[in-house]
């Protein structure tokens, strides 16, 4: 690291990389908050979102914002259907069984996408823009737009949780399902909503990953370890935690790439998971375990 500018550039890169992890991590934590199991299938939902967005954008010629909305919807519906059909029946057996089921589910979803689309790489129909430079620090407009999209979606979710009756009901179920039930909140309805939103956000995030790279059936799988790291660092079940955790993991991986070796970025994600779970299982920012 020759000077402060290089360090700043690494930080900027990390924030950009982290911002695309943000939505899948929020999705994961949103589902965890209500249903109390880690859903590995967010990788599959992210891939589904990426391909839904591709169909909308390339095959149907929709502009990117509309394609993003479509990615959210399709992934959300797919997530809801998958949850109801595959994971919900496993809930009585405990969170570990559901977690293992979700590993199988993500393999299933990946292969459904492979069956339908093949393995070929695909790119969205968008121009690639040159970086902007601020005093030597380069930032890409597309990545800024992605970060903005992620923040806007996260913000919309916060608003939903904070200011609507539905949001308050969701938080109530997350805090104490029994009490919420007594108060007349239908926990099943809330669970379905959480899964729809969580899977939808994962899908939106998957398309953001795709906008920054290109997509194939392994798109979600490639980011899943980092997404889990983000969710755990932020505190499983904590939505603001996931947002901050994503940035921490993004920056951490970039720093590790520079200091350690680019071949060992994923090790950072693992170490982050290990350290946080051991020392502070409620996450760096979460109050609740």
């Amino acid at each position: 690291m020759e000077d402060w500018r290089d360090l700043l550039q690494v930080l900027v890169n990390g924030v950009m990389a982290g911002s695309v992890l943000m939505l899948p991590a929020i999705g994961l934590n949103g589902i965890f908050a209500v249903l109390r199991y880690p859903n590995f299938a967010v990788a599959g939902f992210a891939t589904i979102g990426a391909f839904a967005g591709w169909v909308a954008n390339v095959a149907w010629g929709m502009p990117a914002p509309a394609a993003l909305a479509f990615a959210f919807l399709v992934a959300g519906v797919a997530g809801l259907l998958a949850e109801e059909a595959a994971l919900r029946p496993l809930r009585p057996a405990g969170p570990l069984t559901v977690a293992i089921g979700s590993v199988a589910l993500t393999l299933l979803l990946e292969n459904i996408i492979r069956f339908a689309f093949g393995n070929d790489l695909r790119g969205y129909d968008l121009p690639v823009q040159r970086d902007w430079r601020f005093d030597g620090i380069r930032v890409n407009p597309q990545q800024l737009a992605n970060a903005g999209t992620a923040l806007a979606a996260a913000g919309a979710l916060f608003a939903l949780l904070a200011f609507t009756r539905l949001g308050r009901a969701m938080r109530a179920v997350a805090d104490n399902p029994v009490l919420a039930d007594i108060k007349g909140v239908d926990p099943d309805r809330i669970a379905r909503l959480a899964v729809f939103l969580g899977a939808g956000l994962a899908g939106l995030g998957g398309m953001l990953v795709g906008l920054d790279t290109s997509i194939d059936p392994l798109t979600g799988f490639r980011v899943i370890l980092s997404v889990f790291a983000a969710a755990v660092v932020g505190g499983l079940g904590s939505i603001p935690g996931a947002a901050l955790g994503a940035l921490v993991v993004g920056v951490g991986e970039e720093l590790a790439g520079v200091i350690l070796s680019p071949a060992y970025r994923s090790v950072t994600a693992f170490l982050a998971i290990l350290l946080v779970l051991l020392l502070r299982p409620q996450g760096l920012f979460g109050a609740r375990a």
Binding site: E2, D6, Q9, V10, N13, M16, A17, V20, R138, V209, D212, T213, L218, T219, R222, V223, E253, E254, G257, V258, S261, P262, A263, Y264, R265, S266
Partner: peptide, 20 residues
């Protein structure tokens, strides 16, 4: 000479090294 991790989705810092 940079050996990178194939499964990653962002290689901006690697490209920074190249630029420098």
């Amino acid at each position: 000479f940079v050996i990178y991790e194939r499964d990653k989705t962002a290689f901006r810092s690697e490209v920074d090294q190249l630029l420098r």
